[in-house]
Simulated scan of single mutants.
Amino acid sequence: MLQLEKVHHIAIICSDYNRSKAFYTEILGCTILQEVYREARDSYKLDLALQNQYTIELFSFANTPARVSRPEACGLRHLAFSVKNIEENISFLKSKNIVVEPIRLDEYTLKRFTFFEDPDGLPIELYEL
């Protein structure tokens, strides 16, 4: 068996680099660790941290195919972030004109959660601890 310790990072390819960069930094609150433009690939790579922990690599590539997301497509289903107060976070998202689904209740943990989407339609979950 592998001896995995933790998730190192999540890589996301976006269709509009500037729009996604703003979303992940200004809406989700990730901080930029490093931003690199790779001229040979006409591609950006943005390393992002959440609470000082390297979390997301955001990439841009020319002419990427659209990601099939719903209903229940095979592959990455969603990103999930824990929050202390789900209502405060929903209010913030709505103030930025981001559509948020109604709060649901996890039938096994009895914790509340909801979903919204990044600029490319990738589902993002808020899970209240």
Rank of each mutant, 00 (worst) to 15 (best):
Met1Leu: 13
Leu2Ile: 12
Gln3Gly: 13
Leu4Tyr: 11
Leu4Arg: 01
His9Glu: 08
Ile10Asp: 00
Ile10Gln: 10
Ile10Thr: 14
Ile12Gln: 06
Ser15Ile: 00
Asp16Asn: 14
Asp16Trp: 00
Asn18Val: 00
Arg19Met: 02
Ala22Cys: 00
Phe23Gln: 06
Phe23Pro: 02
Thr25His: 04
Leu28Val: 08
Cys30Gly: 01
Cys30Gln: 01
Thr31Cys: 00
Thr31Asn: 10
Ile32Asp: 11
Glu35Ile: 06
Glu35Asn: 11
Glu39Thr: 12
Ala40Thr: 11
Tyr44Ala: 04
Leu46Gln: 04
Leu46Val: 13
Asp47Ile: 04
Leu50Gln: 05
Gln51Cys: 07
Asn52His: 12
Gln53Gly: 00
Tyr54His: 15
Leu58Glu: 01
Leu58Asp: 01
Phe61Lys: 13
Ala62Leu: 09
Ala66Cys: 01
Ala66Asn: 04
Ser69Lys: 13
Ser69His: 12
Ala73Cys: 11
Cys74Val: 14
Leu79Cys: 11
Leu79Met: 15
Ser82Met: 13
Val83Phe: 11
Lys84Trp: 01
Ile86Cys: 05
Glu88Thr: 14
Glu88Ser: 15
Glu88Met: 10
Asn89Val: 07
Phe92Gly: 08
Phe92Ala: 09
Lys96Ile: 04
Asn97Met: 05
Ile98Trp: 03
Glu101Lys: 14
Arg104Phe: 03
Leu105Val: 15
Asp106Tyr: 06
Asp106Leu: 07
Asp106Glu: 14
Tyr108Arg: 10
Tyr108Ala: 11
Thr109Asn: 08
Thr109His: 08
Thr114Arg: 06
Phe115Ser: 07
Glu117Ala: 09
Asp118Ile: 06
Asp118Val: 09
Asp120Ala: 06
Ile124Leu: 15
Leu126Met: 12
Tyr127Pro: 02
Glu128Asp: 02
